[in-house]
């Protein structure tokens, strides 16, 4: 989709440590707000699903796939409204529905402005991909009870795209019923966010809680690579900017991404300070917020 607008931003200050910090914090806040809008769409889906499932339970029966059709107008609306979201829907906990063992009520935008349902073969006797319950976008909200950002990851189940998936648990009468979710393709996220990163006085990129780069304006840290060393999960936990040498780490509250900004031109440090190797694979904190 070529209609993703860049996030509007005030011109950043270009000199002075305090100014650079303020600029980084401003960009982090705007990145956080952009994804927060997608999270709001996820929350709407979760609320509608919860209401629907509660209504069906009040009728004294188990929900079926036909009941979930009532979610479609809302899902289509959110797909057309949220420019960053390319797929939205509800993914049922296996066993929830009476007519199928597992189900994704999932809709995707086609890029030509249309929407289409995702139809997967979820028969474990025929597909090696029938069990979706181990994917982060399902397992994190289920296990933590909180919303989560999965990825960046290659989504070979639904879209074949390098993606972020934002998801939140759906509970009915205190029981986990599945997750509401939205897909943000990385290429769209980059279109929206890169102009902001390029405003900053130092080389900057965004990482998730595990240090995986999501979007980068720093050729030394490309999307998909891992930044080892800093404990990004701890930065997100404290929800405050931190420094590591000349590298600034700013949480993009309220979403679990960290803006990493190296020292500006003229400094030898650039992005290298953040790449100190400190033992492989030490941190794998879940990125629930």
């Amino acid at each position: 989709m070529s209609t993703i607008p860049a996030l509007a931003g005030a011109p950043a200050a270009t000199h002075g440590a305090g100014a650079a910090e303020r600029a980084a914090e401003g960009v982090a806040a705007r990145v956080g707000r952009a994804l927060e809008a997608v999270f709001e769409a996820v929350a709407e889906t979760a609320a509608e699903t919860e209401a629907l499932l509660t209504r069906v339970a009040a009728e004294g029966r188990r929900p079926a796939t036909a009941d979930l059709a009532a979610l479609r107008p809302g899902l289509h609306l959110r797909l057309s409204r949220e420019e960053l979201a390319s797929g939205v829907g509800f993914i049922a906990e296996p066993g929830l529905l009476s007519d199928v063992p597992a189900w994704l009520e999932w809709w995707q935008s086609t890029g030509e402005g249309d929407v289409r349902p995702l139809l997967l073969d979820l028969d474990p006797g025929r597909s090696a991909y029938a069990d979706y319950t181990h994917w982060d976008w399902f397992a994190l909200p289920r296990d933590t009870g909180r919303r989560a950002v999965a990825g960046p990851y290659v989504d070979y189940l639904c879209s074949d795209e390098y993606s972020l998936t934002l998801s939140a648990p759906v509970e009915v009468a205190g029981r986990f019923a599945g997750v509401a979710a939205a897909d943000v393709y990385l290429r769209h996220f980059e279109t929206a966010v890169l102009p902001l990163l390029r405003e900053l006085p130092g080389p900057a990129y965004l990482v998730n809680a595990r240090g995986r780069v999501a979007v980068s304006a720093d050729p030394a840290h490309l999307a998909g690579s891992l930044t080892r060393g800093p404990d990004f999960a701890a930065v997100l936990e404290r929800a405050r900017p931190a420094a590591r040498g000349e590298v600034r780490l700013v949480p993009c509250r309220p979403v679990p991404l960290v803006l990493v900004m190296g020292a500006g031109l003229g400094s030898a440090a650039s992005g290298e300070a953040a790449r100190e190797v400190a033992g492989r694979g030490a941190s794998s904190a879940p990125s629930a917020t």
Binding site: T110, R116, L120, L122, A128, D160
Partner: peptide, 10 residues
Amino acid sequence: MSGGGAGGLR
């Protein structure tokens, strides 16, 4: 048949 996804018969 979905446009994407490894579960489908392509």
